[in-house]
């Protein structure tokens, strides 16, 4: 028991590691938020493009969605970071992580938004038209808001799952919470900083997991 505390919950080591891990945690939060913003916006844009009656465009969107839904996140990060420089394009670890995971989220979000738009009953269009709304206003004012509220629980689940991938940024030296903790651990020869980083991750994601559970329940009750 004493050994357990000495190694994993060593207060002295943790205090020393706190500034470094806290700085890393700030980056974790920032990267996660960027991924979610990028992924949801691009996902919505892709879903709208897929609604457009232009066949090659729909194929292009479908191909993009399939590629980013299928490839492992870490593979995308590694390819962007280590293969692009051969094209003289170098992305920072931050940009690499946001771009890679943002693209993955956008692919899933595009599918969810598209399904939700299709799930809004036709009657809504007819009713809006009967009320005298012009066709180009029906979509943004009537259909899209309903589609988005339909999509929220699924989107929340996906966004949280993918934001957790921020830790993968440590593979390309993104100084987020996990990799800062690892570098401190290497110096102190004591894994307490890892416990600290794990605690930060839990503190960040447990409320989100509970939130998505609540959103799901609410959707079931409404549906």
């Amino acid at each position: 028991m004493e050994r357990l505390i000495e190694h994993y919950f060593n207060a002295g080591v943790m205090a020393g590691a706190l500034p470094e891990v806290l700085r890393g945690f700030g980056i974790t939060v920032l990267v996660s938020l960027c991924i979610i913003a990028f992924g949801l916006l691009v996902g919505l844009a892709l879903a709208l493009l897929r609604c457009a009656p232009i066949r090659p465009l729909r194929w292009a969107v479908a191909a993009y969605v399939d590629v980013f839904r299928t490839l492992p996140q870490l593979v995308i990060i590694i390819v962007l970071y280590f293969a692009l420089p051969y094209l003289d394009v170098s992305l920072s670890p931050f940009a690499t992580t946001v771009l890679a995971l943002g693209c993955v989220l956008s692919a899933f979000a595009a599918d969810i938004f598209f399904a939700a738009i299709m799930a809004v009953p036709r009657g809504q269009w007819d009713a809006a038209r009967a009320l005298g709304l012009r066709t180009e206003r029906i979509f943004p004012l009537v259909v899209l808001p309903q589609a988005i509220s339909l999509a929220v629980p699924l989107l929340a689940n996906r966004a949280i799952a993918i934001a957790k991938g921020t830790a993968l940024g440590s593979a390309v030296a993104l100084p987020e919470a996990l990799s800062s903790a690892q570098s401190v651990t290497a110096i102190t020869a004591n894994p307490s900083p890892l416990t600290l980083a794990a605690a930060f991750y839990l503190a960040f994601f447990i409320p989100l997991v509970i939130l998505s559970r609540w959103l799901e329940r609410r959707a079931v009750r409404q549906g």
Binding site: H7, Y8, K164, G165, T166, A167, L168, S170, L178, Q182, T185, N190, P191, L194, T195, A197, A198, Y201, L202, F205, I206, L208, V209
Partner: peptide
């Protein structure tokens, strides 16, 4: 709630202690 990589690092680098 644990990112799987955090679990992996805890298991791989933490348990040996």
């Amino acid at each position: 709630a644990f990112p799987v990589l955090v679990l992996l690092v805890l298991v791989f680098y933490g348990l040996p202690f």
